[in-house]
């Protein structure tokens, strides 16, 4: 059926009357290349601003160069990578990025899971709270970052006022090496948890009702329903969220740039901010592109894993 339709598509305009063989042939050729013409503009953009840059950054990572003078570029082999891994600062940056990512992903998904189980109901008030929880997701990170800087102001901020109100001492938030990273994690979880919640809710709603009806006929207790039905049925959603959240946590930049500039004492310096500083402020193009390649490797692996699992899912269906 499909094939017939496709064959028809290919020759659709050939049916018109009174055409010579030559025009027919030309038309056929045009029909063959038409799909390629249609996808070319989009793919050209991807090529120039996406696939070429990927290859280019790998090329640049094997060279010593700087944004100050792009004509002077020198092959250095793996020197940038060895320099990075021998650098204690960079190892710290990687470690901080890892801690940040693990905590943000675990908290963001964990909290969202319980919120989703709770908020997945028809009554209007639940829809309202869903919208409220989601609203930070569509607000610019610039505003979110500045708003939280103000809330976390150690002297006049609302958070410390609330802490003192319930009799607790004020917290140091962004001003201390011990608490700055945690503060950034809180902001990121606050902004992102609503998205995760709504994705979980969409997943919950796609679980067929009759499975639950069968479970309740069997008098299955709620925790068994949760662990035997809900969680397994949600596993594709959970996996999707794990990948998306991990990739986006690795990209953290805006909050660092606005709220901490990597400080205090480098305690919130993470991968993208490091690349930005090395490349744009310190003019170490080679180091910055080598760090970009490491980030590319991480994100690429996650993407590959994602595609593999998605393929499997499609096959099982």
């Amino acid at each position: 059926m499909r094939k017939a339709a496709a064959a028809h598509e290919m020759t659709a305009s050939g049916h018109a009357l009174g055409r010579t063989e030559a025009t027919k042939a030309r038309l056929n050729l045009f029909e063959t290349i038409r799909p390629y013409l249609y996808v070319t503009p989009a793919l050209a953009f991807f090529g120039v601003f996406f696939f070429f840059p990927i290859a280019y950054v790998i090329y640049l990572s094997f060279h010593d160069w700087s944004l100050l003078n792009l004509d002077e570029i020198e092959w250095v082999g793996l020197a940038n990578f060895t320099a990075l891994f021998e650098d204690a600062d960079f190892r710290q940056v990687l470690g901080t990025t890892l801690i940040y990512t693990l905590s943000t992903v675990a908290l963001g998904i964990g909290i969202a899971f319980f919120l989703a189980l709770w908020l997945n109901r028809k009554a209007k008030i639940f829809g309202l709270v869903q919208a409220a929880v989601f609203s930070p997701h569509i607000i610019s990170l610039v505003s979110v970052a500045m708003l939280w800087m103000w809330l976390m102001d150690p002297q006049y901020g609302l958070l410390n006022a609330l802490l003192e109100f319930i009799g607790l001492p004020g917290y140091t938030w962004l001003s201390d090496t011990k608490s700055a990273l945690l503060s950034l994690i809180i902001v990121s979880v606050w902004k992102g948890v609503g998205y995760n919640t709504l994705v979980f809710i969409a997943g919950l709603q796609s679980i067929p009702r009759d499975i639950y009806e069968a479970a309740s006929l069997d008098r299955s207790p709620w925790w068994r329903t949760l662990t035997r039905i809900t969680i397994p049925m949600l596993s594709p959603t959970l996996f999707f969220l794990l990948v998306i959240n991990t990739i986006s946590s690795f990209q953290v930049f805006d909050t660092i740039y606005i709220m901490t500039q990597g400080g205090p004492v480098n305690s919130t310096n993470m991968l993208v901010f490091y690349i930005y500083e090395q490349g744009m402020d310190f003019y170490n193009g080679g180091i910055a592109s080598a760090a970009s390649v490491i980030l590319l490797g991480i994100v690429g692996l996650l993407t590959l894993l994602h595609f593999r699992v998605m393929e499997k899912r499609v096959h099982y269906r």
Binding site: I247, F253, M280
Partner: peptide, 26 residues
């Protein structure tokens, strides 16, 4: 070709801003 499009969906701008900046300045 559609697979290439899907890859472009996954890789964020932060990974490749540096080479794109170099392109732009050229």
């Amino acid at each position: 070709l559609f697979g290439l499009t899907l890859i472009a969906l996954m890789i964020p701008a932060q990974v490749i801003f540096l080479p794109v900046y170099v392109e732009m300045s050229h």
